[in-house]
Write a protein that binds this DNA or RNA. Sequence first.
DNA 1: AATGAATGAGAATTCATTCAT
DNA 2: TATGAATGAATTCTCATTCAT
Lengths: 189, 189, 189, 189
Amino acid sequence: MRKSKTSLIFQAAIDVFSEKGFDKATMDDIAARANVAKGTIYYHFKSKEELFLFLVEEGVEMLRDGVESKLLDDMHPREKIELILREQISFFGQYRDFCVILLRESWGAEDRQLEFRKMIRSYMSLIEGVVREGIEADTFHSVNAENAGSALFGMAAIASLHILLGKGEYDEEQLFSDLKRMALAGLVK
Amino acid sequence: MRKSKTSLIFQAAIDVFSEKGFDKATMDDIAARANVAKGTIYYHFKSKEELFLFLVEEGVEMLRDGVESKLLDDMHPREKIELILREQISFFGQYRDFCVILLRESWGAEDRQLEFRKMIRSYMSLIEGVVREGIEADTFHSVNAENAGSALFGMAAIASLHILLGKGEYDEEQLFSDLKRMALAGLVK
Amino acid sequence: MRKSKTSLIFQAAIDVFSEKGFDKATMDDIAARANVAKGTIYYHFKSKEELFLFLVEEGVEMLRDGVESKLLDDMHPREKIELILREQISFFGQYRDFCVILLRESWGAEDRQLEFRKMIRSYMSLIEGVVREGIEADTFHSVNAENAGSALFGMAAIASLHILLGKGEYDEEQLFSDLKRMALAGLVK
Amino acid sequence: MRKSKTSLIFQAAIDVFSEKGFDKATMDDIAARANVAKGTIYYHFKSKEELFLFLVEEGVEMLRDGVESKLLDDMHPREKIELILREQISFFGQYRDFCVILLRESWGAEDRQLEFRKMIRSYMSLIEGVVREGIEADTFHSVNAENAGSALFGMAAIASLHILLGKGEYDEEQLFSDLKRMALAGLVK
DNA sequence: AATGAATGAGAATTCATTCAT
DNA sequence: TATGAATGAATTCTCATTCAT
């Protein structure tokens, strides 16, 4: 009786959505997983769509806030990028299911999907800002900051999920070290 | 009367699946788009699943073959990476809808999705090979080649789609130049 | 703080039922309109059905009592019919929503509907009595009094609602004059 | 195998709708009554709403056409009114269920209900025309023709249903004679 | 007396698939 | 080969009613 119904539903929804995707997941699935009557979900969330949106909102916020709170003003841009990569890798490891949802459901023209991309964009623009800062400080090469932002996000996201959904162990250190090298120093010696 | 029913259906399926995604697309949609009776689709393809699988197979093959055919043995690994990035950026620009399908439908535990990831993996391993080659030739830093492969694929994929699904113009040259810089020389000056 | 909960609910129920009809009206609607928790309604009324029945009972009683109280023994049957028509026209104008409920929910085989028809019948039989009286006094042509009762009720009801639910103004005088003429003197000169 | 599925559904729908009303009637009911799978209904009719609308359209048309086709130009207005009354009484007797639907579902503000009233109005205006004709020929008293139209329709409708839904026998002759008298000659001797 | 969270039995609608022609 | 009418299982969502507080 510790958990509120709302958070039971929330947890169950993450599980089910990440397992089956938005369309294949059913409210019956979620209700069963949460040990709650179907009507109860609708008492707390207006629709499947809204439940899903809420869930993604929370997740992206968590990722962004986690990174944002650790970024200190007096850090060097290079250090900031490192921190972002490290955080993102760790977040993906910790919330694999949520990250699957994110990559799965963000592409398309439905309202929900547009909404998701907007959220992701809000996170990317955080990275973008750091890149811009580095360029202005003449520490970074002059690249299009938006491209850099989405590329950094994408490289970390896909590489993380590639491992997490494969059979291998998720060696965060190795991945971090590789991505750091590629992003900051480049592949070429 | 030129086109075989099969290819009519195939074309219609690409259109509809990329527009709506696997689940939201209906066989009626596809039949209507192909100007064919619904039963006819079932005469040519066993199921919706099979039609979709066939379609994605063709697409990934196209991407891989396009890259593979242009990779020459005597190219420098750096040149090969450049070529791969350029090709992938161009492919995503050309087949945006197919790429959306790919990113949308590859994450999950259904057979179809495992199948997709296997296909993508086959493409990634092509990149992986080049990285390994570069490391062995002592041109590249020593990174985990698998990580590098998925990171390179992911960076190009996400950055491309980020632009293609936003409102901006798809400036392939700029994107290529930025990704090349990040991947090969690194952000830091 | 003046109003008892019961009458708050009663008022809200009239509003909501007439706006949406029995089936489309929800207990949530009514509770919200009454500014009362849903459970409270069930504290005062056993069920939706009972609440509705109670409400219609009151309404029909109001109509019948209104007419009955104005019918004086020494009136001429012709005058009585006139009075009934006038009263009914005025009642329909004043309680349009209730009258809609009445016409909407009285036809069918459910208990509730049988109950309603019984109530309406009790009102009709009031008219019937006057007709019978007129026939016995040899003032009215000899018609089947039951037919006459329902016909008079129906002519006034439908004509009233026809105007009230259309866009036109509700000209009670004109309507009264027309119905009186038709019912008492007939159309033909 | 004689009947087309469409007409099977049509018949079943009339039965069920008149028995239970639009809201209480379920597509399952109708499918079961028609001995057809639920999906089949949706193959032939886009929605419950549309099925219902179609049904009412047909019915009103039948009533109006029936009357219209029997109205001859050289009839006296009085004869025309008689004919209309007779026809309507007979129609209500024959299609009691449909008529219940009509009186049940025409009152309210939903689109469907507005649509219904429009249909009924189209029938009423037929009566209206005859009344106007009579007034112009100086055969009828000068009343508001619209009021007369709705009143005549209403008197016949309610009186018919009053009998048909009660236990008594439906004595068409008696009812016709009574209504004719009231409408044309008036109650008063 | 009053509350409102929780319930679960339906309801309308969709759609992949089948099959007789 | 091709068709499209027919199917029925599955899905989202609604809402009267209950009950612990």
